[in-house]
Every structure is written in C-alpha cells, then in structure tokens.
Design a protein around this nucleic acid. Structure first.
Lengths: 191, 191, 191, 191
DNA sequence: GATGAATGAGCTTTCATTCAT
DNA sequence: GATGAATGAAAGCTCATTCAT
C-alpha cells in the first residue's frame, strides 16, 4: 500500500505517533493529539491513513523496516562466519539500543491485537538474514546443531533482556558489559 | 448485617480482566465487559477497584506474585547450587509456559505507562530469589564473575524469546528442546 | 406523614442533609454521604424517608416549622400593634441570622422543582401570623393602606437582602445597623 | 478551511440551558438535553464549554451581564439625583420582571456552591453603578446617612420579595402596585 | 430495624471519524 | 489537499435504591 502523496507529512505523523505512544501508552493514543504533535489538522491524518488501526500497522512496518536496514548495513554475508556473526550480534545490540524507543514500541505491540496478521508476516521476513546466517553456521559445524530458533533465542533474548535491565537502571551498557554478554552467549552456542 | 465483602469477587474480576485483555488487547478492555464476564454488575467492579487504571495495576501485581509463588515452590536454596539453578531455570520456563497468558500480559505491560512506578518497584522485588542465587553462584566460583544482571539476561532472555517463537509457531517446546536450550545457556554462564 | 420510629435518627439525618447541601450544593447531595455523615448505613435512611425527594421535602418543612416556632416565641398578638410589629421584625431578623444555614437552604430551594406543591402550600401557612398582623395594622390605620403583600415585601425583603450582603462580607450586622434598617423600613410602611 | 467556530452557538446553548434549568431544576440538568434543545450534538457543547460546571458558571455571568446592561440602558448618572434614582429603581424592577426566568436563575444559584469565587467576584462589580448613585445621594443629603449596603437592601430587597410573591400568585404587579411599593421604599430612605 | 454490598440505569465525557469550507 | 468544527456512538463512572444477611 504505497503512499507517495507527501512523504514528509507521513514521517511527521509517524514520529508524532511514536512519541505519544511511548509517552502515554498505546491505549492513550489520540488521533487529534497525533495531528497536533505533527502540526497538522486532525483531518489531514486521515488523508494519509485510513484509520487509527492503519496508522499503527503502517508505523509498525515502517519502524521494523528502518531498524532492519540499519542493522544489516555493512554486513557482508560472504565474509568469514565468525566475523559476520560478531558484527551482526553487535549491530543488533547497538541498533536496538540506539533506537530504544522504536524497539520498545516494536516489542510492546508485537502481540497486540492491533497488529494485522499480514503485518506480522512481513515483520518476520526481516529477521531472515540472521536465520540464514545461523543455518550456515550449523552447516559449517561452527554452531551447535540445534533448531535455529533455539540458537536465535540465545542470541536475541539476552540482548532484549539486558536492554530491559538497562532501562530499569539495573545495569550499565558499555563496551565491557556488551563484551561480557557476547562472550557468555557465544560460549553457549559455538560448537 | 448486610452481606459482607466477598473477596473471591476480586479474583473473579482479575480472571475476567485477564481473559478480555488477552482476547481484545488492552485498548479494547471495557469495564462493562469485565463485569459481565465476571457475572457482576458494572458498579460492583468499582467497589473493589477505584478505576480502570487501578484494576490493571492490581492485576499486574496479582499475576506477578502468583507467578513468583508458583515458580519458587519446591525450590530449596540450601540444596546444591547446580541443582537449585537447574530447578529454578526449568521452573521458570514451565511456569512461564503454563501461564503463558499471564506472562504475555506481564511482558506486554511491563513498560506500559499504565503501570504506576510503585507497582514497578514491587514487581522487581519478586525476582530477588534468583538474584540471590546468582550472587551465591558467583561467590562459590560456579558462575562466571560478571554483573548479576548480565547473568540474569542470559538465563531469562532466551526463555522469553523461545516462548515467543513458540507462539509464532516457529518452534516446538518439549523436553528435548528445553534441554537443548538449557545446555546452551549453562555452557555460557558456568565458570 | 408523621414518623415516630426514632426521632433522634430522623434529626441526625436532617442535620447531615442540611450540612451537606450547604457545603456541596443541592446537586451534589448524595444519599450515601448523608448516611455516613449521620453515622448510619445507607439503607437506614430509606427506612425513615421514602426516597431522596421525600427527604428534601420533609427537611424543608421541618426547617420551616422550626424557624416559625422560634420566631413566634414570645409574640403576643394581643399586645400593642407597634410593639408586636417591632418584636416580630427583630425576631424574624434574629432567627434568620442565627439560623442562616437553614434560611439559606429555605431560600435556595424555595423555587426548586424538588418542592412538591403541597409542601409549598403548607410553607405559606407559616407566615400567616405576619399576614394577620399586617392586616390588623392596616385596619387600625397604623400602616399605609396597600396590599398586604406589598407591605410584607417591604418588611421581609430588606432583611433577606441585608443578610445576603452580610454573607458577602459587605456589611456588619449589629444592634446599630439593625436599628437603622428598622427605622428605614418603618418610615416606609407606617401611616 | 474548516467551518469556523460559530459563537452564536454559545448563546443557543445558554438559552437551552436556562430553559431546562428553569423547567427541571439544576439537579435535573442533563448535558445531552442541553445539546438536543440547542439542536447540537452532545459533543459540540464540550467544544464551547469545558464541562457542566463551566457551562453553569458562564451562563451565570452571561445572564448577570445581560441583565445589568439592560437595566442601565438610558440611565444618565449626570441627571438630577431623584430622577436617576427613580429611573434606576423602576428599570431594575422591570428588567427583573421581564427577565424573571433569568432572575430566578440568578437568585437561585447565587449562593450555590456551583459558583466559583471568581465568578461571584465579577458578579458583584455589576451592581457598582447603583452603589455609586447611592453614595452620591448620601453626599448630596438626599438620602439618610447610613451604610450604603443598608440603603441597597431597602431598594433591592422589596423588589425581589414582591416578584417572589407575584410568582406565588399572591399579588399582581402593575403600574399601581409598583408605584405603591416605590412610595413606601422612598419614604423609607429619603432624607 | 439496621446494615452496606450489590445493582444497573443513566449520566458525563471522550474521541475516532466525517465533512463543509 | 488541508482544515478543524461538528458529530454521536460508546465508554467510564456514579449513585439512588434494593435486599440478603
């Protein structure tokens, strides 16, 4: 559902929506406030998005795509497996950290009934490069031979959990702590 | 004497709320429906809970406490460290799985602005037994000497992630896959 | 509609109702609060009064009667006209002042649609002694020969107005100011 | 451009509110009925008034101002004192009579806890022209030298009282009865 | 009679959506 | 396309009244 009418306005609306959702939560999101925050009239939002539901779903995809593009930048799957895995792990960590807000939104509403199933579907495609890499790792005997999903849980789960702890003020995130976590994780999955 | 306050009504209301939140999401939760589902009049809900906000917060604490009690049942911190760690890991996994709905709710609304900060505070206390255990493990030289939060991320994160994958239909969860994940995780954190 | 069940409880309810009406206004009056203020259960109020409407109307009559009894105390219509008139004028002033709250209630709800017409009817009877006196004054040539209602306006109106000003903090009420007003009023109506 | 705010709607709402308050009393006033009576949607009322309370207070001021403007029309304070006083007295009487409904509302809710104190404050300013006139009368030796408030009670009180009697069907109001009252009042206050 | 928890009709208010300008 | 006033269905919440104890 490509929309080309006025890309800047759409982005303004996305940013405003994200800001308000993070501030006041999803249930507290009001279309009139989104418009105001984006310096637009209420009706204008409805020119670019069919309804509130559409706005949320479009935003979800927008953020997911943006995040994926960011964290795959500079990853060259043809390089040495260990190097690619390291790069991708730190990239995922850094991108998730730097775009905490987006990530919070993505995490928070992943299971929300607001998300249409087709949006969920596209959303899953995004992690495909990681899946591919892990399958390669298993084939090359670099990783323990278990279901790729199990490996993925081990890779992505601790990152999410640590960033959550960071937001609760329970832990600092810096080169050292990131490395420590990386060592633990790799010790676990590497063959 | 009038009929006296019936505190089982509170649990009825909690169950109804949880059911409806999981079905229709948080934004779609209606107080009248909660009451109906619990076979009560709308006003009755307001006898036990100040308002919608209060209901959600109380429910959060209720579920968090219930989950904690469940997964600490039968754990005796005086036993051998490795055994306690194993028991606690599987208990956390099993309880999270068996009470997926509650867990989904807990995960989903942990960061939600609906949660008052004092509720968040109490919520954190609940994981204390695990913290204590991990600290003991580090002291006894059984675990890698890193920040406890980092260890916790490694323990809890993959479980959450795997259950998420399970719900997306991406992986099966059984004795084998659970064990595989356990092996990976332990290989990572054990000294 | 005489009620003899428990006079003290009825009076408690009257006082509580009056207090709450004056504090929060008529629209803000809640039966549950009336009961609480009177240290009774909500249901108890309904033993003594059919419903809210009945309570208001009974209270109105109760206060009106009480006020009337008070201000006619010690008035002997057989005494000299001028003396009776003076006594009655000051008595009305003093009683209205000393029971400002009741009077405020009476004034405020005199026209309220809450008042049943039969209550209004009985209410009017209460001023009868003054009417009678004024008619006597006209007959005896002591007062200007105009409609008794006009004379009454002249007698009661300034008192109400002055007490209102007193409540707005605009004027003090003491022996002197009362006398000044009395002089003005009498100069007006006396033949 | 959207249709622009239509401030005549405010007056529509005022008139509807007044009508309904007088019909059903203040406690019986419903926002939905106000809207319907004004041929508007419920929500529209909330565009122009923050809430029910705000509506009542604004209405009070609106009526008070309108009444004041009306009764000061054609009064020229530079004219002969006796003439101005007479004009102002009859003007107050006539305006109060012709706008009985408004006046009833104003009287009825003057002490109501609904009125915010700032509204009461502004309300008092409105009688200033009469105060000024009475002070002038005292200075010029035309009126008895007593507190202006006492004089005011004497002027305004009987009018209110007589109109009240009129509503109870106790007296007729016409040129003759008005004049009779005027004579009594003036005999009282004139030096 | 007394109690106060329970009821649910009914009210206030909100807010997604529309549409006249 | 852009605007934002207007709409009115729908939701949160209240509170007079009832009734089991």
């Amino acid at each position: 559902m490509a929309r080309h009418r006025d890309y800047t306005k759409i982005e303004q609306i996305f940013e405003s929506t994200l800001k308000l959702v993070l501030e006041k939560g999803f249930a507290g999101l009001k279309m009139a406030e989104v418009a105001k925050e984006a310096n637009l009239a209420t009706g204008t939002v409805y020119i670019y998005f069919k309804d509130k539901d559409d706005l949320i779903n479009q935003l979800y995809l927008f953020l997911k795509r943006r995040k994926t593009i960011l964290f795959l930048q500079g990853i060259d799957q043809k390089e040495d497996f260990d190097l690619v895995l390291k790069k991708i792990w730190f990239a995922y960590f850094e991108v998730t950290m730097q775009h905490v807000n987006e990530s919070a939104f993505l995490e928070q509403y992943y299971r929300s009934p607001f998300l249409k199933s087709n949006v969920k579907e596209e959303s899953k495609q995004i992690l495909k490069p990681i899946y591919d890499l892990l399958e390669r790792g298993v084939k090359e005997g670099k990783l323990h031979s278990v279901n790729v999903e199990i490996l993925l849980s081990q890779i992505v789960g601790p990152i999410h959990e640590m960033i959550r702890a960071y937001h609760d003020g329970a832990v600092e995130i810096n080169a050292e702590t990131m490395n420590q976590l990386y060592q633990l994780v790799m010790r676990g999955i590497k063959a």
